[in-house]
Design a protein around this nucleic acid. Structure first.
Length: 495
RNA sequence: GCCCCGUUCGUCCAGAGGUCAGGACACAAGAUUUUCAUUCUUGUAACAGGGGUUCGAUUCCCCUACGGGGUACCA
């Protein structure tokens, strides 16, 4: 591909459009800081800097059930660690705030009503039950499941009266039945979608909060976003966004959908198959500049044979023409090689400073000391007693057998997987909570708690002897702990 | 199922009609090194298939196959 791609430098773009370049990354605080967020943010950041534009961070926390302040905090911290500073955001402010969508609920509501007034949206009173039945019937009849636009045909007065009376409802996008909507993607050219196949998307949920589609479009417009850079998974919902912009009578932004990062098997990168948390890469000692360089290589090339380059150099050389649309597999081996190259470029003093920032600083060592103090008699026993706190993956071939004596490897793998789910849910790794939950788990499944705990101990430390289990897990860290459990479970399944 | 995107060595990229299809990771062999690592040299390895367009297609178009994404009162 590439033929259709306009070879326009954004600086010319700037001049011809007289529009300030403003980009944003818009993570949803519903989990761990995702490496995909860092990937998109890198391109946002680099493009903004290249053009002298602004990079905005916006928190999309409209999913009230799944969003948490802890997750938001972790995402901000992780993005900063990667080295991608934003010009405007919830923590630094800016002229177009607030930058947290939960604080903008009223704005979306007004805009939803405005769209209803303009005839591009309508209230819908259908119950979840009716929707489910409709869906089931459509699937049975081998039709595409989609809303049948029943409430679109409601007389406006009746809809108004019922809404006023407080009847539970949502607001849906009024998608034309005919014609097609064209999305202009800067990287792919025009992509056409038949309107008949676009669902009357819910814009405002019955809890009064907007869905992604409404909030995203309203904010991008209000925040003067000029280029919407996001992952490819959004491409198919972009026609809805085009319809929204048109419904409001707003100028369209430029869309650029970046390819999705992939697992080794080619599927969208996911925690079951590949560590996806930025914190994981930090904890195994990946340098942020190496991570940035590596992520840049996923879909962008410097030109010439340059593999290793600084973010500053990338900013200088950046061009959308050099973006690839293929599906890049996140290759840990190449990341490790690149990281090694960065480490070798550090002076001994700089490397020492990096090691201290990582885990060889006073803070971390001070956390370990209470755990091992009563277990050592000589200072020289400290390092051997704590090696697993300073490692990523463990070599289970060198460790005692993972599975309890009377348990099959398959059953042992199940035990580890079940424990993993508990750890996934227990974000702050509270020792008492973990203890209680794991004991309950063992009870329910008929496993011996001591066997479960011993297996966890071996999986996490590679030994049968260690400091107290939960204190150890906390110190090893959530990411490395989870990684080891997955590795151990995979090993058992394979044996 | 339907809609959309994609497809060059195992992996990440280069290649914008005529190249011995190039580099990097990984792998293999060799050199350097007391060892290991680093470094250097060399090697194995790819244009998914079929039709067009063209004097000539990896490159442009179409079809098929394969991969992926989407198809929620999640983002």
């Amino acid at each position: 591909m590439g033929g259709r791609r306009e070879a326009v430098d954004c600086r010319e773009d700037l001049m011809s459009e007289k529009r300030e370049v403003r980009v944003r990354v818009a993570p949803s605080p519903t989990g761990d800081p995702h490496v995909g967020t860092a990937y998109v943010a890198l391109f946002d950041y680099v493009f903004a800097r290249h053009c002298g534009g602004k990079f905005v961070l916006r928190i999309e926390d409209t999913d009230r059930a799944r969003s948490t302040p802890e997750s938001e905090e972790a995402i901000l911290r992780a993005l900063r660690w990667v080295g991608l500073e934003w010009d405007e955001g919830p923590d630094v402010g800016g002229p177009y705030g607030p930058y947290r969508q939960s604080e903008r609920a009223e704005i979306y509501r007004e805009h939803a009503f405005e769209l209803v007034r303009r005839g591009h949206a309508y209230p819908c009173f259908c119950t979840p039950e009716r929707l489910a039945e409709l869906r089931a019937a459509q699937i049975k009849a081998k039709e595409d499941p989609s809303y049948d636009s029943l409430c679109r045909r409601l007389p406006p007065e009746e809809a108004e009266r019922r809404a006023q009376a407080g009847e539970c409802h949502v607001v849906r996008l009024n998608v034309p039945d005919e014609g097609e909507t064209v999305v202009h993607d800067r990287l792919r050219g025009d992509v056409a979608f038949r309107n008949a196949l676009i669902d009357d998307q819910i814009l405002l949920k019955s809890d009064g909060f907007p869905t992604y589609h409404l909030a995203n479009v309203v904010d991008d417009h209000l925040m003067r976003i000029s280029h919407v850079i996001r992952a490819e998974e959004w491409l198919s919902s972009t026609p809805k966004h085009v319809l929204l912009y048109q419904g409001f009578g707003w100028e369209l932004p430029e869309w650029l959908h970046l390819p999705l990062l992939r697992n080794p098997d080619g599927s969208k990168i996911s925690k079951r198959k590949q560590p996806v948390s930025i914190d994981y890469y930090r904890d195994i000692g990946i340098l942020p500049e190496a991570l940035r360089n590596f992520l840049a290589l996923m879909g962008w090339s410097f030109g010439g044979d340059r593999e290793k380059f600084s973010t500053e150099e990338m900013i200088e050389a950046f061009s959308w023409d050099r973006v690839t649309l293929g599906a890049p597999v996140f290759d840990m081996e190449k990341l490790a090689w690149l990281n090694g190259a960065y480490i070798r470029d550090l002076s001994p003093a700089e490397l020492l400073a990096r090691l201290r920032e990582w885990r060889l600083g006073d803070d971390f060592l001070l956390r370990l000391i209470p755990l091992v103090r009563e277990r050592i008699r000589r200072l020289d026993e400290f390092v051997p007693a704590t090696t697993f706190f300073f490692a990523g993956d463990l070599d289970y071939a060198e460790a005692p057998p993972l599975a309890p004596k009377n348990q099959t490897p398959a059953e042992a793998a199940k035990m580890l997987t079940a424990a993993l789910e508990i750890l996934d849910a227990e974000r702050d790794m509270d020792a008492d909570a973990l203890d209680a939950r794991l004991r309950t788990l063992a009870d329910e499944k008929g496993w011996k708690a001591r066997e479960l705990f011993m297996m966890l101990r071996i999986a996490i430390t590679g030994r049968t002897v260690s400091p107290p289990l939960f204190e150890t897990l906390r110190a090893v860290g959530r990411e490395i702990t989870r990684r080891r459990l997955r590795q151990a479970a995979a090993l058992l399944k394979g044996s």
